[in-house]
């Protein structure tokens, strides 16, 4: 068995080597909370999901070594700008507001936002239909921005949660009447026991809020942007993207 000292020594040498190497490893930041089917951990603790496989494929196409680094969602942009991570690979939508502080690669997928509510509730996703209702969203998301912009005027309250699972838990507990989130991310919840009483009530569109899809978040002016764009184009062309997407989705997740 390796002694702790040898392991430490090897680690120190390895760290020294990689620091001097031409290309250091790229730290991909992802939300520390699970976001199935995009990013999740299995029973053994290994990462899995569409985004994990896609990220690994993109890194392979770039010929780089990548390390997944979990970061709490509401601190993920500051973590990028303070160089704790080198790229945000966490289903982050490309929006005008975010483009003021960071850069984005081209999109790597695009799914619509949806409103979920109890099956027996008369809600259709419109501002009028949530009149007097409490709407739950995950804070720091485009869904939160949408709720604030379109539903804030009519809803009794827009409640902001730290995680996707938490607003779903409160939806099941009856504390919020409807939640706004990614249509695809809801699928796992709607398929579960707790989610069986709920359904997608409406698809929400507003390009000014939701942007042009999901891209890799990068520091302003970082040369990694060209590398990521080239890699995304490459895996789109050679069929790697479709092979991965087919495992998770029955429709074209890349969008138009």
């Amino acid at each position: 068995m390796k002694s702790l000292k040898t392991i430490l020594a090897t680690a120190v040498i390895a760290a020294g080597l990689s620091a001097t190497a031409a290309t250091a490893e790229i730290k991909l930041g992802l939300d520390s909370a699970p976001y199935p089917p995009f990013a999740d951990v299995d029973a053994s603790g290994a990462r899995k999901g569409f985004e994990i496989e896609l990220g690994n494929a993109i890194c392979k196409a770039m010929n780089e070594t990548c390390v997944w680094t979990p970061i709490a969602w509401d601190g993920i942009i500051p973590a990028l700008n303070s160089k704790k991570i080198d790229a945000i690979f966490a289903s982050m939508s490309i929006t005008e507001k975010r483009l003021k502080v960071i850069d984005f690669s081209n999109k790597y997928y695009n799914t619509p936002a949806a409103m979920v509510a109890p099956k027996d509730m008369a809600i259709d996703g419109s501002p009028e239909s949530v009149k007097g209702k409490i709407v739950g969203v995950q804070g720091s998301t485009t869904h939160a921005d949408y709720a604030k912009k379109h539903l804030g005027g009519t809803a009794a309250e827009v409640k902001s949660y730290q995680g996707f699972d938490e607003h779903n838990a409160d939806l099941a507990a009856g504390r919020v009447d409807a939640v706004v989130g990614d249509s695809l991310a809801f699928q796992a919840f709607l398929d579960s026991d707790a989610g069986s009483k709920f359904e997608i009530k409406g698809i929400l569109n507003d390009e000014a809020v939701f942007g042009k899809g999901v891209g890799v978040g990068l520091r302003k002016g970082d040369a990694l942007k060209e590398k990521f764009n080239a890699a995304i184009a490459k895996i789109r062309d050679d069929g790697t993207y479709d092979a991965i997407a087919k495992k998770y989705f029955s429709f074209d997740i890349y969008g138009k």
Partner: peptide
């Protein structure tokens, strides 16, 4: 909050 509170409904 999430435990006891979810029993009430």
């Amino acid at each position: 909050y999430y435990g006891v509170g979810s029993l009430f409904p």
